[in-house]
């Protein structure tokens, strides 16, 4: 199947590993991945920060770039939620009937990775191998806007070699919230502290999620505390096999940013 990758500006720039993992995973499963190079950003950052006029051109751009793609996947729950839940609202406010129509079908064609694997491709087991102790943090937008439920956990449970441990108070927000983490840093950090305590209680080596934004936050806190726990995107775990491990980036070392060259 032809699948267009919407990498998101955030992953493109800061977490290229995750994009590479999605490509490796989907190609291993026999699909053709295309990457429209004209894509930039879905506008979520501007929309959520309260700059709606600035978000609108980015929404238009996204709708144009992905207009003819039948199936779009993104390794970010919150960007998919932006497309599915907020695009109709932005389009409505613009009063442009063409945009309203364009974003309607867009929401139906755009999927978060675990949704694509389970709902569209009908896969519970992607044949991954990942011999590490892992705990899963359900990111808020994937959980409460996309309602992906335990789809990532279903996929993780099928991974061979994994030691999956439950995260206490998993559904509590990690405190990221985009500019909230900076504008309301003290409150955000108080929320993060509880999340980090819970992550460490599990004894996991790896904390995973369907969103790198939460993982940047949790990972940033773990790194500061020298906790010895890595934050790794779900796609990277699912991309890993016995023959071709994707590896855990070492915490706080330059490894975390080494790009895997396929």
């Amino acid at each position: 199947m032809r699948i267009a990758l919407f990498i998101t500006c955030f992953n493109d720039t800061l977490f290229p590993r995750t994009g590479q993992a999605v490509v490796r995973l989907l190609e291993r499963l026999g699909h053709e991945v295309v990457f429209p190079l004209e894509q930039t950003c879905c506008g979520q950052m501007h929309f959520n920060s309260g700059y709606h006029d600035e978000a609108l051109p980015l929404v238009r751009r996204f709708a144009r770039v992905f207009r003819d793609e039948p199936l779009i996947v993104s390794p970010s729950g919150s960007c998919v939620a932006m497309v599915r839940d907020h695009y109709p609202h932005v389009a409505k406010e613009s009063g442009d009937p063409e945009l309203i129509e364009a974003v309607r079908t867009l929401g139906e064609r755009t999927f978060e990775l675990s949704e694509l694997l389970i709902d569209v491709l009908g896969l519970g087991d992607v044949g991954a191998y990942y011999p590490h102790r892992v705990t899963y943090h359900p990111s808020c937008h994937a959980l409460r806007m996309l309602h992906i439920g335990d789809k990532p956990l279903q996929l993780l449970r099928a991974v061979r070699g994994i030691d999956l441990v439950e995260l206490p108070a998993a559904e509590q927000c990690c405190g990221f919230g985009g500019t909230f983490a900076i504008k309301n840093a003290d409150t955000s950090i108080a929320m993060l502290d509880d999340k980090l305590t819970n992550v460490q209680e599990t004894g996991a080596e790896v904390c995973t999620a369907a969103d790198n934004s939460c993982l940047m936050h949790i990972g940033g806190g773990l790194s500061r505390q020298r906790a010895g726990v890595s934050a790794v995107h779900l796609a990277e775990i699912l991309a890993s096999t016995e023959a071709e491990p994707f590896g855990v980036p070492a915490v706080g070392s330059g490894d975390a940013i080494t790009v895997v060259r396929a």
């Binding site: 990498i7 720039t13 800061l14 983490a181 806190g221 790194s223 940013i257 080494t258």
Partner: peptide, 13 residues
């Protein structure tokens, strides 16, 4: 209270 990982040498694109 949080470290930041720098932008890697190569973007995804």
């Amino acid at each position: 209270a949080r470290d930041l990982m720098p932008i890697p040498d190569q973007t995804f694109r």
